[in-house]
Design a protein around this nucleic acid. Sequence first.
RNA 1: GGUGCCAUAGCCAAGCGGUAAGGCAAAGGUCUGCAACACCUCUAUCCCCAGUUCGAUUCUGGGUGGCACCUCCA
Length: 465
Amino acid sequence: MKLYNTLTQKKETFVPIEAGKVRMYSCGPTVYNYFHIGNARPFIVFDVLRRFLEYTGYEVTFIQNFTDVDDKIINRSHEEGISPQAVSEKYIREYFVDADALGIKRASLHPKVSEHIPEIIQMIKTLEEKGLAYNIGGNVYYRVDHFRDYGKLSKQSIEDLKSGARIDINDEKQSPLDFALWKKKKEGEPYWESPWGQGRPGWHIECSAMSRKHLGETIDIHGGGQDLIFPHHENEIAQSEGSCGKPFANYWVHNGYININNEKMSKSKGNFFTVRDIAKTFDLEVVRMFLLMAHYRSPVNFSEPLLQQAQTALERLYTAKYQMLFLLEKAVAATASEDEIRWITALDKYKKSYIEAMEDDLNTADAISVIFELVRELNTFLDENSSKPAILAAQALFGELTTVLGLAVKEKETSLDADVEALIEQRQAARKAKDFKRSDEIRDQLLAMGIVLEDTREGVKWKKA
RNA sequence: GGUGCCAUAGCCAAGCGGUAAGGCAAAGGUCUGCAACACCUCUAUCCCCAGUUCGAUUCUGGGUGGCACCUCCA
């Protein structure tokens, strides 16, 4: 497949280091709060990338970390009067609640910073030995001037970065671009013993250390949001490549932002929505649909009306899925007709187009449009006279294509309360007697109970509103 | 100041050299007791101006408008 590589600013054909295997790392959340819709985008995007790579036959090792040592967690622990560890444990649990609802699969491993302190210390020691780090009274900084390739990811020269840098209050650094690898302990903060005294790791070193430990010195794909390009990923490169002299990641993949009214969502602007908040109004699968209907690199505007559009679109997928289920129950013909056999064979073109779209830099928008074309085909061709093999073939293809995107994966609820079933029967009786007033009353009554009725040629159907 | 990105119908959004996918909405129709679902029909001088080309939404140059990074943020 082709992937846009931030490093080269081009779409490139993906070639793994080891045939048939992919090692990828994606920056995970700092666990100090529920995550917001902006965080959700990379989680979903890299989940889909991982699923697609697996679908095409790769064995994927996918690492997504939890940052559980951080200023924001410490602040939060003071606010809530609980330990930093309790804060991070709580929000790791909450992460999985939201991630599950968004249809995000567990990574192969979710490593935590707090469990990788020895690896982090080791990496800093190596950097120090190589003259790429210096210790000032227990604070260790990266010496950016000594890393030749600094700026290669963000396309900035060290000079340009310096001229744009804000005046730093921290004057103990040799250069304003230098960044902390190890922070000296402050009162009331968690700390670990190290060769430089008690303290804790800086923000960037964790990803370098955990990636190396679990995936090796050079990995295939490193992902994250565009805002991580600088400084986070630039610094990761400096640390990883500076300490071992080998390329850190072959493909750097970055997703675009989520905007509110064309402005970046950010904590400082206060215009962000947590996924947990959205879950009050929408099934979070809608959020997944909404995000995947756009290409992962383009910026996306977020609003409730847009989510409603996505919801209606998603329902169309479910209608088709459940219709096939319905037809399969009714189907009597056990063998496909010649006509059907030809049709089943022709279905393959949808799969081809779909894969083509996904292989082109993970074009999920295009892939979804192929699914909608397939849905129209299914709705047109399949009916109560269709044979079981034809329906099964359609079902299998639909399921295959939607599952890679993690969409329309919910199974239909099959049981109804006895009183609901009784009402449906009463309404059928009323309809038969042409008592439409009564039958409409019952329909409204059921609607109020969250049950939508549809009278079809094949009989009455129901679904949850 | 340095570095990137974007501009396609009412809304969202693919396409990126051969006169425009898909979804939502609106309109008309088939089906239906009505409705819903589904299906059919309908909806675009691709921001502007030059240039390259037989041919440009797609490439180049110049505008205009918007966004982001260089500071914690996905």
